[in-house]
Amino acid sequence: MTVDWDWSYTGDILPDLLKGLRYTIIATLAGYAIAIVLGMVWTLLRRTPFAAVNQAVRWITEFIRSTPLLVQLFFLYNVLPSWGLSLSSLTTGIIGLGLHYSTYTAEVYRAGIADVPRGQWEAATALNLPRSRVWLDVILPQAVRRVIPTLGNYLIAMFKDSPLLLAINVAELLHEAFEVGSKSLMFLEPITLVGLLFVAVSVPSSILVRRLERRYATY
């Protein structure tokens, strides 16, 4: 086994890869913004007193959560145009990522609210606090600090799922690496670099998440 690592080639392809990294980051952050907001919408809808809305939302989110993101991306990419909704592949990818992960963040919010001790609800009732104050001043402040580290995890998870966007022709990191690789038929350097770039971003962010966890620890 001989390892022929070509350093000058590595230097040549780096600008292309960094261009791809830009798209990866844009898709991740925009998708995350959608996921954070939409997840809250799902959670609130699940708490409405209407059983029909409740169950519908429950099964919709369950369906989205238990089917692969890649299939959903293809679905959005191929089906939306035939319904007269033509979006760029990047926008489609962002919507797909955001929608998929919103079902995860919804679960996180739900668990975070459920994690607030019952005594807090009871105390709020005993003090006769109005509903808005129960939520804004008692429950949510405690729920939010519980979910922050977990939400941070999903940002990392989304970052790692963003290479799937290459399947719908978004010029993200892995896509670019594959492109430069197929031009020169040298795949070792670009794809190894992509792997290292991912580790280089993921590991520090996971350390950051652990810090957050310690900072917001409630036990």
Binding site: K160, L166, F198, V201
Partner: peptide, 8 residues
């Protein structure tokens, strides 16, 4: 845990 499955 740091790399994406697809990249791997």
């Amino acid at each position: 845990r740091g790399t994406a499955t697809l990249v791997l």
